[in-house]
Simulated assay, not measured.
Amino acid sequence: MPLFAIPFPMIDPVIVTIGPFAIRWYALAYVAGLVGGWLYARCLVAGEALWGGLKRPTAAELDDMLVYVAFGVVLGGRLGYVLFYNFAEFLTHPLEIFAVWKGGMSFHGGLTGAAVAIWLFARSRGLPVLSLFDLAATVAPIGLFFGRIANFINGELWGRAAPDVPWAVVFPNGGPVPRHPSQLYEAFAEGLVLFGVVAVAVRLLGFRRPGTIAGIFGVGYALARSVCEFFREPDPQLGFLFGAGVSALGGGVTMGMVLSLPLLIAGLALILAARAGRTLPKGEAPSRGDAAA
């Protein structure tokens, strides 16, 4: 083993097996992210001053919204992985699309699925769509944090070779080469740091200018993910899409970077559109146009 390598902590990806059923850390991460986000969202909707009089979901509506989002994340995440990361393989073996227990989820697909689910929910309940996007964006980093920790426990999505980095890890399926623990980098950047940035924005701005918080999240995630991609080994079936060897950090452009670009653009567009609107003072009742934003 190289001098600076840290042995991978062999944590069984299966927490417990009950008959034919296995409870995995990855599934638990999804549950923890959804439940943690739901609890935090309940606290946020209780803060009347944050909303400036805008219509916001009740606690009961948040319960229903959780179900919508859960289905959207799982279906969108799986479909995104199938389409963008391994389409040829699934085209050859289409039944494998449904074998979600074997892994294979895309954050960008899950985000799209969650956005569609929130839009449908908002339309069905007469709630402002952008305000629900803002609320979801505030709690999303919780799920990102737990998801990346689960990636590390599973020993998947490891980083690029880093033989001279003291904290490099030798992953069981990554060969004998010590690698960046890029899953932990992403848990820190996309989870903890982004959570802090969005939380501060909510503290300062509230949800009184719909679309702002969602835009900040979109820009923040796109930047954090793109930076972390420089340390993450690209998916073997894709490799670098182009520009291999051009970057000062090595490698080239990955699918994660490409999929983050539309999110960056959408985030900037939301921020600019929100700035063109009017911020509601604390406690002010919204006009008809504000309520439908």
Rank of each mutant, 00 (worst) to 15 (best):
I23K: 05
N86D: 15
V35K: 06
V100I: 15
L50M: 08
P20L: 04
E156V: 12
A273P: 01
A88M: 03
A136R: 07
Y185P: 00
D235P: 10
A214H: 03
L135D: 09
M10G: 10
F98C: 03
V100A: 10
A222E: 06
L192S: 06
L111S: 07
A293Q: 14
L44K: 01
P234N: 01
V227A: 15
G143C: 07
E190H: 02
I142E: 05
R203T: 11
A244I: 01
V139G: 04
Y68G: 13
N86F: 01
M10Y: 02
S287T: 15
G267F: 14
R203H: 15
L192Q: 09
L127H: 04
G36S: 07
M65N: 07
Y81W: 12
A274H: 13
A99T: 08
L268D: 04
N151L: 07
N86I: 00
L3M: 10
M10Q: 14
A199V: 03
Y40S: 05
D64E: 15
G37V: 10
C228H: 02
G218M: 08
I142N: 03
Y185D: 05
V197S: 04
L194P: 00
I23D: 07
T17A: 15
F84H: 10
Y40C: 02
I118Q: 04
V139R: 12
P141V: 07
R125C: 10
C228Y: 05
P20V: 06
G206T: 10
E186I: 01
E48S: 11
G80D: 03
G109A: 08
P13F: 14
L157Y: 00
V246K: 00
V14D: 12
G109E: 01
V74W: 12
M257S: 07
S247D: 00
G53H: 07
V258C: 12
A292S: 14
L261M: 13
P94T: 11
A140M: 15
A88F: 02
W119S: 10
V193R: 06
V73H: 09
F188Q: 01
F242P: 00
I6S: 12
L34Y: 04
A292T: 13
S247A: 10
A276C: 03
G19H: 01
G175N: 07
R148C: 09
P9W: 10
L135P: 04
I149N: 05
P163F: 14
P281Q: 01
A201M: 15
R123Q: 14
Y185N: 01
W167N: 14
F71C: 14
R78E: 10
W119T: 14
F145V: 11
A114Q: 03
E229C: 07
A140Y: 12
D12Q: 13
G251M: 00
M255T: 11
G239C: 03
A5W: 11
